[in-house]
């Protein structure tokens, strides 16, 4: 729009020249101060963490600008620009320190959380251990209860002869005298009871069914009774308290006509508190 008017055009050139001259006249120190402050304001950390220090840098720059407007010499401008430069650096360092501190605060709460979790895990583990200990204790108690029940079963028969405990056929090896592990366990329980109960005399009687020869049956019943005696002695019962008898097939407690009856007849009885041998 001004192109068609040479005089105005020339005036424009003059104004431009003056502006350029003004620019050229701005001391480099002042330029540097301005750009470093404006760069500082671009830094979000400074804005967030060091607003006071940033304001001090602004004040330092205002002194530079005021000095540049006045007739300050170059030495003073350089000095004031130095102050600006240092104020900007102070703001940046303070921002870095505050930023690190903010991260430290976050890490400290992370740390609390880690420790809290670890404690919870430890508590959970302790609880699991306590649970398994409790389970083991319960199992032991149940086992004892089962053994007591077995013993109670054996103790079931109070007779005129004394307390009669019966070890069934299945507690011995088939057609032999050796005690099975279950039988050994029952004998052990009985031995404990006898020792705890005042060392009554024990009559151990072996019995069989009527299958096979009488001599064989008598011998088998004798060997089974002896096996029980040996087990009692091994379990700490004094040998002279024990008397052994092989009764053979003479004292059945059930019919020999059925398999179940015969099995009941194959047995060893312990008569505890028997008056005489």
């Amino acid at each position: 729009m001004m192109m068609g008017r040479p005089i105005v055009h020339a005036a424009g050139l003059v104004a431009l020249g003056a502006a350029l001259a003004a620019c050229a006249a701005t001391p480099p120190a002042v330029e540097r101060a301005r750009s470093s402050v404006s760069a500082m304001h671009q830094d979000p950390l400074v804005t967030q963490h060091a607003p006071v220090a940033a304001a001090r840098a602004d004040e330092a720059l205002a002194r530079v600008d005021a000095a540049a407007q006045g007739a300050a010499n170059e030495a003073e401008l350089n000095h004031l620009a130095y102050l600006v430069d240092r104020r900007v650096q102070i703001a940046e360092e303070q921002a870095a320190a505050s930023d690190a501190q903010a991260r430290i605060d976050t890490l400290a709460s992370d740390r609390d959380q880690i420790l809290l979790d670890a404690e919870r895990w430890q508590a959970a583990r302790a609880e699991a251990r306590a649970d398994s200990a409790l389970a083991a204790a319960r199992a032991a108690r149940d086992r004892n209860a089962a053994l007591s029940a077995q013993l109670a079963d054996l103790q079931g028969k109070q007779t005129e002869r004394g307390l009669v405990l019966t070890l069934g056929d299945i507690l011995f090896e088939v057609d032999g005298a050796a005690l099975q592990p279950g039988g050994q366990e029952q004998v052990r329980r009985i031995a404990e009871a006898v020792k705890a109960g005042g060392n009554d005399r024990i009559l151990v009687e072996g019995h069989t069914d009527n299958r096979g020869t009488e001599a064989y049956n008598r011998d088998l019943s004798q060997r089974r009774a002896a096996a029980v005696r040996d087990a009692l002695v091994q379990d700490g019962v004094a040998p002279d308290l024990i008397t052994v008898r092989g009764r053979g097939e003479d004292y059945p407690v059930a019919t020999n006509d059925t398999a179940a009856g015969r099995q009941q007849n194959r047995r060893v009885e312990l008569v505890i508190g028997a008056p005489t041998a």
């Binding site: 220090a53 650096q89 102070i90 360092e93 303070q94 870095a96 320190a97 505050s98 690190a100």
Partner: peptide, 9 residues
């Protein structure tokens, strides 16, 4: 300020 920042880091 440099010292504070270095220590914090």
């Amino acid at each position: 300020a440099r010292t504070d920042a270095a220590l914090a880091k």
